[in-house]
């Protein structure tokens, strides 16, 4: 059974993913619509992942990494993610996507409650958004 809406979360392994783990261990509740992908660093989050996620049926995407300035394990991965997210947001806006579809948040390893809170918020927001629908290429041939 699929749960709607679906939210894809990219989490860096050193901070945000650790926070999600801690949230689980300390039995903090967050919605089941969250799908987490764990990557080494927020500097590894590629813009393509967001486009692909939205295209393949996710309603919203969350990028979560370590707090700037000094938390990043790889020195400046979070800075890269930040510039990327800014550009990507503008790009998505031009394509007619709502602001809530894509979000970047900093979550430190200890902030389990913050992770749960943001997860709840983003799912709530996504529930209010209309379901994404894309016409496939072959449908264009139907007048």
């Amino acid at each position: 059974m699929s749960v709607e809406p679906r939210v894809l979360v990219f989490a860096c392994t050193y901070c945000a993913y650790a926070a999600a783990e801690t949230a689980g261990v300390s039995k903090l509740q967050y919605p089941p619509q969250i799908y987490i992908v764990r990557l080494p660093c927020s500097g590894m989050f590629k813009s393509y992942y967001v486009l692909k996620a939205l295209r393949s049926g996710f309603d919203a995407v969350l990028w979560s990494g370590c707090h700037p300035p000094y938390d990043c394990h790889f020195i400046n991965g979070n800075y890269k993610a930040r510039v990327r997210a800014t550009l990507l947001k503008a790009y998505l806006k031009q394509l007619g996507f709502e602001d809530e579809r894509f979000r970047l948040e900093w979550i430190a390893a200890g902030e389990a409650d913050r992770f749960a809170l943001i997860a709840k918020e983003i799912v709530e927001n996504a529930t209010r958004l209309p379901k994404l629908r894309f016409i496939e290429y072959r449908e264009v041939e139907v007048k």
Binding site: K46, S47, Y48, L51, N76, Y79, K80, A81, R82, V83, R84, A85, T86, L87, L88, A90, Y91, Q94, L95
Partner: peptide, 27 residues
């Protein structure tokens, strides 16, 4: 998307919104 990734590696601007002044029309 490739170019956005590349730009983020080239430029770390502060605040990040500055980059939109250089690229006012991403599409």
């Amino acid at each position: 998307a490739d170019m956005i990734d590349a730009l983020s590696i080239f430029y770390s601007v502060e605040p990040p919104e500055e980059i939109l002044k250089a690229i006012p029309d991403p599409i």
